[in-house]
Simulated assay, not measured.
Amino acid sequence: MNSLSYLNHTLEPFPSPELALTDPNGLLAVGGDLQPKRLLNAYYEGIFPWFNAEDPILWWSPDPRAVFIPGTMKASRSLIKYLKKQDWTYSINLAFSQVIEACAAPRTSQNGTWITQGIQDAYTALHELGQAHSIEVWDGNQLIGGLYGLGIGQVFCGESMFHIHTNASKAAMLMLHQHLHTQGFKLIDAQVMNPHLISLGATALKRKDFLILLNRFRDLSVAPNTWEKSEVSLEL
């Protein structure tokens, strides 16, 4: 039976994602906190927080789930042609705090942001613990695009991306795919399907199928240097 759970500040187990509501799709629990251990427990079980500044903390596990297989992002000929003309450079984990701050900036199509200061602080703490990571796109010394998310074994859980220059967020996604494919990652969790993700090659999985894959890949080890701060090159 689908039901909504209420969490307190004790580090209690999350309810099964299969108990999430169908309307709104995937809402599973309310409350708790954003301490690193709770966040890691959530992602380990296929659950993530998403809420507005005026809301309590809301925890979700939607059905279906948007995913990518690393290396399968669709890059159009026009995008590749455009990127080849740019002198952009790329990096991993060199500017995590700048990336999440840029992701939190209000969008023209939105009122406010769900990436509150509390969210920024929580994921920055995870970054300092070596669990949250960023991809950066640079035009000279200017950060023009990027994304961030969590590494859970050989699964990358994407959270948000931004761009200042046209196609810079798509370039960050391509860089992420290339890097994860090279490092042997098996799955990218993009959470909720939308037309933009579909255009990039995302697949919609039933929640139960996503959880099977997550359970299979979440405890697999990765190379020690996978998330070292470094400059990287995008192969087009």
Rank of each mutant, 00 (worst) to 15 (best):
residue 27 L to C: 06
residue 82 Y to Q: 09
residue 174 L to A: 14
residue 227 W to Y: 08
residue 41 N to D: 15
residue 116 T to G: 04
residue 205 L to H: 11
residue 159 E to V: 12
residue 172 A to T: 07
residue 4 L to N: 01
residue 206 K to G: 13
residue 115 I to Y: 05
residue 95 A to I: 01
residue 177 H to G: 12
residue 183 Q to H: 14
residue 217 F to K: 02
residue 224 P to F: 03
residue 26 G to M: 01
residue 192 V to P: 06
residue 218 R to M: 08
residue 189 D to A: 11
residue 21 L to D: 09
residue 197 L to K: 09
residue 210 F to R: 01
residue 131 Q to R: 14
residue 167 N to E: 15
residue 217 F to M: 04
residue 93 N to K: 07
residue 105 A to N: 09
residue 222 V to A: 05
residue 180 L to W: 02
residue 191 Q to R: 11
residue 15 P to R: 03
residue 108 T to D: 15
residue 209 D to G: 04
residue 194 N to E: 04
residue 114 W to D: 07
residue 213 L to P: 00
residue 39 L to H: 02
residue 120 Q to H: 04
residue 150 L to P: 12
residue 40 L to R: 03
residue 221 S to V: 11
residue 63 D to S: 15
residue 108 T to I: 12
residue 111 N to G: 15
residue 94 L to N: 14
residue 190 A to I: 03
residue 157 C to N: 02
residue 78 S to Y: 03
residue 144 I to C: 09
residue 132 A to T: 06
residue 187 L to A: 09
residue 25 N to K: 07
residue 16 S to W: 02
residue 114 W to A: 08
residue 78 S to P: 06
residue 93 N to S: 06
residue 227 W to D: 04
residue 137 V to A: 08
residue 119 I to C: 02
residue 106 P to N: 13
residue 221 S to I: 08
residue 24 P to I: 11
residue 191 Q to N: 11
residue 200 L to P: 05
residue 209 D to V: 05
residue 7 L to G: 00
residue 171 A to K: 09
residue 75 A to M: 14
residue 64 P to Q: 12
residue 7 L to N: 00
residue 153 G to V: 12
residue 174 L to M: 14
